[in-house]
Design a protein around this nucleic acid. Structure first.
Lengths: 247, 247
DNA sequence: CGGCTGCTTGAACTTGTTCAACAGCGGTGG
DNA sequence: CCACCGCTGTTGAACAAGTTCAAGCAGCCG
């Protein structure tokens, strides 16, 4: 019987930090995860694709640093970013249980990730059921986030949407220790925000200006500052429940 | 060793029909599923809630007949239908692995469903790994559908959105044998369509009129007719890949 | 220095919303 | 049997939100 690491423990990697919010893992589980990922690190340059729709990948990717996005493209070229991948996220089991990717994953900032072959990943999940359970919980939280994005695009206006996005990112980055008191590092361009929020570039620009002049954010260069998170949450009708971070 | 039922087999229940598209199940697996659901059938009247956001349910629900929807509500009352539940769908493991529901589920037409206690469900998944695998695949297909809805709301206009919805429903109903040559039974009101597509009632009405006068659908009473599915798919920029029905 | 990418602005335009009214229909109670 | 009610669908007209087009600016990197 190995000692269990309490949920509050600050793991070495963002992935472990996040999984510990869902289940307590034994030192053995954590060692296995660390060992598994250590030698399989890959890197993707900013603005390059990691997986493309239609691929049938035989690896599962765990994101360690940098930002990436899931996106889908319509035949006529319209693009939608359907989700953002932050350090500690992993490409869900799509790649694994379903045959073909129904969307693409692209790096936004330079990304490092661990790429695990199917068989190793499978062995890990059978040998370390606690890890498997934490990963399934994380997948379910991802579904919940996807539903919230559906709500965001369906009911909130542009101003509320962007405010909501910034709140969500704050919470998700906070879990993996990537926020500071003022805000966080923010590599998205305005065009990225537009594609994620289903609005035009021009309107994204004007929405950001509105948020700035309301004093809710300041965004310059690659750094986002949130002077009053509660106010931003109100503006975005944000409630963190759907992230299931308190399980 | 029990005989395996081939994927083409028409199961007795919509659930089994659908699961057989993901994995072949043994006669034993199917019997277990049927036995498990037989005595735990519940019914919900049209326009009543089955699960409410904030609940911590201790059952997993498998939908057997009728239509239901997942929906979320903003503080100021705006509602968004974030997904539709058809016969053969099941309330994903949200209820199971995550503590609290982050959305509600409501019946649209009268619904019958099997409600399985956690422990029985858990025993089934350990004793019948093929069933568990099929259910996980189905859950992943649900995530993919949720992403497609995000794309739908983010990039398609009202006309394309509604066309896309009708195509998706056709495919999903077809899998469980609930379509005929002309179309399918359609219990949604125009207000439901509006809430699912993120548009106003008035605009939903006008969009339906546009689809009708383009000859793409006829919708009267509770029955939807699609004279030319290919044309509707083109109008909705629909491709069925994301449903993962051919695995 | 030149060229690229990302950000900003104005103005015309399109899509979808809101408000308000009304029609049809089925059910219910007097 | 009729009157009435509530729900669903329909319509017109004013309005708001967001898009498109086009141009220009700032910063960065080779």
């Amino acid at each position: 019987m190995t000692a269990h690491v309490p949920p509050g423990h600050v793991g070495t990697s963002p992935l472990i930090r996040k999984l510990l919010r869902y289940t307590s893992l034994s030192a053995d589980d954590i060692a296995a995860l660390e060992h598994l990922t250590r030698d399989r690190i890959r890197q993707a340059a900013a603005r390059t694709d990691i997986i493309v729709e239609g691929d049938a990948p035989d690896h599962v990717n765990l994101f360690l640093s940098g930002w990436a996005c899931r996106y889908k493209v319509l035949e006529d070229g319209r693009r939608q970013i359907v989700g953002l991948l932050l350090p500690g996220d992993f490409c869900d089991f799509n790649c694994f249980y379903l045959r073909r990717m129904d969307h693409s994953v692209g790096a936004i900032a330079t990304v490092t990730y661990a790429s695990l072959p199917r068989d190793l990943f499978e062995r890990m999940t059978t040998e370390h059921p606690a890890v498997a359970k934490a990963m399934w919980k994380d997948t379910l939280a991802t579904v919940a986030t996807q539903r919230e994005w559906t709500l965001n695009l369906g009911q909130r206006n542009a101003y509320e949407r962007v405010a909501h996005l910034f709140c969500e990112l704050y919470r998700r980055l906070h879990v993996v220790g990537l926020t500071d008191a003022q805000g966080y590092s923010f590599p998205l361009t305005q065009a990225d925000i537009a594609e994620a929020m289903g609005i035009s570039n021009v309107h994204a620009n004007r929405t950001l200006q509105a948020l700035r002049s309301a004093g809710l954010i300041s965004l310059s260069g690659k750094s986002l500052t949130i002077p009053d998170l509660a106010a931003l949450q109100t503006a975005g009708l944000f409630s963190a429940d759907y992230l299931h971070l308190d399980e």
